[in-house]
Amino acid sequence: MNTLYVRRQLVNALVMTASLAATAFGLGWLLWIMATTLIQGASALDLKLFTQMTPAPGERGGLLNAFYGSFVMTLIALVIGTPLGVLAGTFLAEFQRKTRMGAVIRFTNDILLSAPSIVIGLFVYELVVRQVGHFSGWAGGLALAIILLPVVVRTTDEMLQLVPGGMREAALSLGLPKWKVSVKVLQRAASTGILTGVLLGLARISGETAPLLFTALNNQYWSATPNGPMANVPVVIFQYAMSPYDDWHAYAWAGAFVMAMFVLLLAVLSRAVLGRAKKHRP
């Protein structure tokens, strides 16, 4: 009896230690990445980073054009991807819930979700860049939209399926047509969950490099419109990090730090949104 107890205590201590070590191992990398990017990029991390253009080697500057370009292309992706994704997800959840067609669409969407982003970059290169004849921010935004789309479709589908069936029945029992029930009642009930999906999709596309290499390329200078090649943070990081200049390296590290922080904040924000939603669920 006593030896059994001791044995359990021992096993408990062992498993606890192993679990803690595994957690520390996982989180350690995150801390390491944040610390390294912060330390290495410290010399370039100041207000000028957000107010000045990418510098030539040996000069001072910032990453304003890259941040702006990333912002514009992400916005294009959101504007294209969110409504399409929400509509498709609603179609799946409300009109194709247990049908064969729904299963096929979900399967296809999951393939798109896990498609290598470089393939999507090449696809948009063929579709837009080669046809138009030059790289552009529009093409970059479109490539990001194709990556965002399946994330939004899937979350919308899942979040709508989580809405209690009673709410659907109650809304239909008021003589409201199905589309109105979907849009006015169910999407609203699932809105925080859908928003979380959009935020997570946003976090995913904001760090994508491969699809932008083939579409938006890069731009050393300010480009106000997405009509031509556009600077963006991931490609600038790539270009500067590969360069032989130490001051460019510092800008690459600083850019990496800001991106990592941005994605971390988005993840925290989406958690907070979802947490609030759970508390308010009837």
Partner: peptide
């Protein structure tokens, strides 16, 4: 049919909107 035959369920089913809008919608 449902305009003529209304229904109230076992568990309350308020819509995620204001009290006013719950009635204004139908």
């Amino acid at each position: 049919l449902r305009l003529k035959v209304g229904m109230v369920f076992q568990a309350p089913t308020p819509f995620v909107m204001s009290i006013f809008d719950n009635l204004a919608l139908p």
